[in-house]
Design a protein around this nucleic acid. Structure first.
Lengths: 329, 329
DNA sequence: TGCAATATTGCAATCGATTGCACAAACGTG
DNA sequence: CACGTTTGTGCAATCGATTGCAATATTGCA
């Protein structure tokens, strides 16, 4: 900017005003400055500008990760969410910073905000970090979390209606005559526990006994799903349906059953969760509970914008819907 | 920082030095400052620090998008790459900024660098932007592109060996007795054109005539794949294999063929490209050419780091490998 | 021509950090 | 006790922008 000022024979004040289109500057001077800036490939230094104006257009997307497992980012639903957020954040004119934070030190996320790195945070992966997230909210960090609404919650969540989703899937399976429905997922996680609650309620409505042995604990990874299925089959517990907590798990289950000669949906019906793009191209096309990822991304950003504007957006539950395809006929 | 200085009864200079662990500061003072900083939840303002030190630990990942189509980020290979980059960039201690840039104005990407927003750029999506990318390189923007190496190229690319990939797939199909192999993709794109070159060469090696009608142009979207397949089937051109330029396209093709009662691999063998995670869970499990996404992410970052260190890394070709599963027996 | 009103421009302080240099206190030595 | 060292701190300039206020140039009008 100093260079431009010198070449244009004016002060940096004038250059600054000219580039920001201030009406205080002569049109001719403005034009001269603009041309010089273009010819020098000059770009305003955003860091300095942000410092001076103490503004910022960056939203941070934080992904907690387990330092012990060194797990990588690969879950398709998760990645789709990232894509959706990239779209939504860009459309609102913000920049998007992706940050992986040690799950045991989520307060580091606060530093992203307090250090002026970003003006707000979207966190994907509520897991069991409820207390840490509450701490962040108490510190007045503008943060919106993708996940389930819990009691005693001071931070804002956006999530799909997991209870409803659990009900939809279970009701569908029951209405197709299934009664020994395996629940496949980790109910220690808030979102999954809500789905389990929906599952239980439908069973109760239909006077179907809830069997603890039909709860199969599995993390969201393919490896974990394979193992859990293996355990289940080995235990010889009879079942005629599986409600899996993600499409990826559902696909894993279907593949596993197929190698055992168990036919889907004839012998065992399967319903997944998420409706990722590949579910419809899977064979057989997957019956699943849809969470609209596009809507999710947009809603997260909207909630954050509200929060940053000083409002207190209430936790949001997005509707889910059952997509019936061929794994549950 | 001023507050801390006042409370600790020292100057900001001392606070700055204390926090940065300078040996010039008395240990006792250091401790006092550190405790105050902790109790006040103080975090250093990174923007100001960057400005003063003219440093920066941010790498921008740029995704060109077509303003006309408003297409969203959803391709699974692409999303996996994003995840892989997030891992690699974080592991190297950098921050990751995601930026979608109008494909016709890629020079805007230069502003991210020149404006001090990031110290280097990784661009995913070479498409047909060769000239614009060359312009960026000429402007000395540290940029590494995921894509194919082209003649007259001044920017650094990292990509898989597409010619080899094309050969692997075609050779495999030919060796299984297929001779009317449809090539499914858009050969106007550099990477695809290299795969096509490999395809052609293997055909020639085996004295199989190259038939223009077996080239089916399709973009990387499901929609486009469906349409292209529809055209192909309508034209009644006989074929006994398909080499699709992505796993997503391969799955689309297999689904489409199945609804027409054409059996894979008995009637038509199919080979995909990418080896995304879901390919192995697809039914039938997909034979495909693997590009290792983990390696890709790490390599892109390494190349960029070299480039930023002032070296001139040569374009890199990552090896591809054929993963034989059940769609090509 | 003289003076007020208006249009442009520059000076200098500021955002929050870092750091070279000067200075003061404490210490060691002859 | 005087003087050179070592140690610890503070002052003030700096990074690249913005902006209130003062200063100057231009114009309009009596």
């Amino acid at each position: 900017m100093v260079d431009i000022a010198r070449l244009a024979g004016v002060s940096t004040s004038t250059v600054s005003r000219a580039l920001s289109g201030s009406s205080l500057v002569n049109d001719e001077t403005k034009k001269r400055v603009a041309e010089l800036a273009r010819s020098l490939n000059y770009t305003i230094n955003i860091g300095a500008q942000n410092l001076r104006l103490s503004q910022n257009r960056t939203i941070a997307v934080v992904i907690p990760y387990d330092a012990a497992n060194r797990q990588h980012v690969s879950d398709p639903f998760f990645l789709s969410m990232l894509g959706s957020l990239a779209d939504a954040i860009t459309d609102c004119g913000y920049d998007m910073l992706i940050s992986r934070v040690d799950a045991d030190r989520l307060d580091e996320a606060a530093q992203i905000y307090e250090g002026g790195r970003a003006i707000g945070i979207i966190l994907i992966g509520q897991w069991q970090h409820h207390d840490q997230l509450n701490d962040l909210a108490v510190r007045r960090v503008p943060i919106v979390v993708w996940g389930a609404q819990l009691p005693q919650q001071y931070y804002c969540t956006v999530g799909s209606n997991n209870v409803e989703g659990g009900k939809l899937a279970t009701e569908h399976l029951v209405s197709h005559g299934r009664s020994r429905i395996v629940f496949f997922g980790d109910r220690q996680l808030p979102e999954v526990s809500h789905r389990y609650a929906g599952y239980m309620q439908i069973l109760e409505n239909h006077h179907i006994p809830l069997r603890e042995e039909l709860y199969v604990s599995s993390a969201f990874t393919v490896e974990s799903g394979k193992q859990a299925l293996h355990q289940l089959l080995k235990s010889k517990i009879p079942f005629d349906a599986v409600f899996a907590c993600s499409d990826l798990l559902a696909m894993t289950v279907i593949s596993g059953l197929r190698t055992e000669g168990i036919h889907v949906p004839h012998d065992v019906a399967v319903v997944g969760y998420d409706d990722i793009e590949l579910s419809q191209h899977f064979h057989p096309p997957l019956t699943t509970v849809k969470q609209s990822i596009d809507v999710a991304g947009r809603t997260l950003v909207e909630a954050l914008v509200e929060l940053m504007a000083g409002k207190a957006p209430s936790p949001l539950l997005l509707p889910t819907s059952l997509i019936v395809r061929s794994t549950s006929a």
